[in-house]
Design a protein around this nucleic acid. Structure first.
Lengths: 138, 138
DNA sequence: GTATGCCTTCTAGTTAGATGGAATGTCAAG
DNA sequence: CTTGACATTCCATCTAACTAGAAGGCATAC
């Protein structure tokens, strides 16, 4: 598959894919006789992984380290292990924080549900609807 | 407490606090006779919330909406509720993804532990130690 | 009484991550 | 055989979120 199709499947800009390649996050792809990049399903998997990890707050550098490590068949050094450990405990902390934030939002919503008796109402926030919908659909 | 102390407690730059104030994330604080900003514990709580939410991937705009909503005593409109719902389901999705990523990292680490028999070893990644430690200590 | 901290406003630079545009080349359909 | 969608590279620009510096002035601490 060519870059446009891969980009469309994952909902990213083709430029972003070339950018990731330049940053070493994606391997140099096969090329068609025409010189076009030719991607397979494993590239799609890898790109999806990058996007997911990114949503979770990992930087491209961190994601690159994880990917490099996944590829490396050789013996890892203890330094690499410690990086991995650090990432793990970081993730644990984040899960905890997310759970707490979730609880807070739920409480907020419960309070809101009680206040809302059914009829539509007007409030200042709606005037920002444009900005908010941009915000929530990105 | 003045801006410097608040900044130090939370580990942020004083400039960042003024920046948040300018963005409307923090309320205009009380002022000392001297004109200095005077913060109380509730400001610290709020700033800590901002920083946590940010680590979890929310943008300053999103955080602002949540905070504005928390403050608003009046009846929320159903639009606001739907924004809150969207944020909640987003958070649920992220928790799930984090748990999966965690499992993946654990598997990776287990494989690594097996390979590592005890002695130190050299590997290419160590040559990037500078970059990595920058990365993991940020 | 002199550092050091904070105030204001303004301007400008930084980083990460991505995106846009120009100039040029390739491919598939009609 | 041309037209429009896509590809290439290179360079430049954009956004979010800071962060820094300067100018000029008052405040507080040792």
């Amino acid at each position: 598959m060519r870059i446009g199709e891969l980009a469309a499947r994952l909902g990213v800009n083709p430029k972003t894919i070339r950018y990731y390649e330049a940053r070493g996050l994606l391997p140099d792809p096969e090329r068609l006789p025409s010189g076009y990049r030719d991607y397979g399903p494993e590239d799609e998997t890898r790109l999806a992984f990058i996007k997911t990890a990114q949503r979770l707050g990992l930087s491209l550098d961190e994601i690159g380290e994880i990917l490099a490590f996944k590829e490396r068949g050789e013996r890892p050094c203890s330094y690499v292990l410690s990086v991995l450990d650090a990432q793990l405990s970081d993730i644990d902390r984040r899960i905890g924080e997310l759970v707490r934030l979730r609880a807070e939002l739920v409480a907020l919503k419960d309070r809101a549900d009680q206040l809302l008796t059914g009829a539509a109402c007007y409030c200042g926030i709606v005037e920002h609807a444009g900005r908010i919908s941009q915000m929530t659909t990105r």
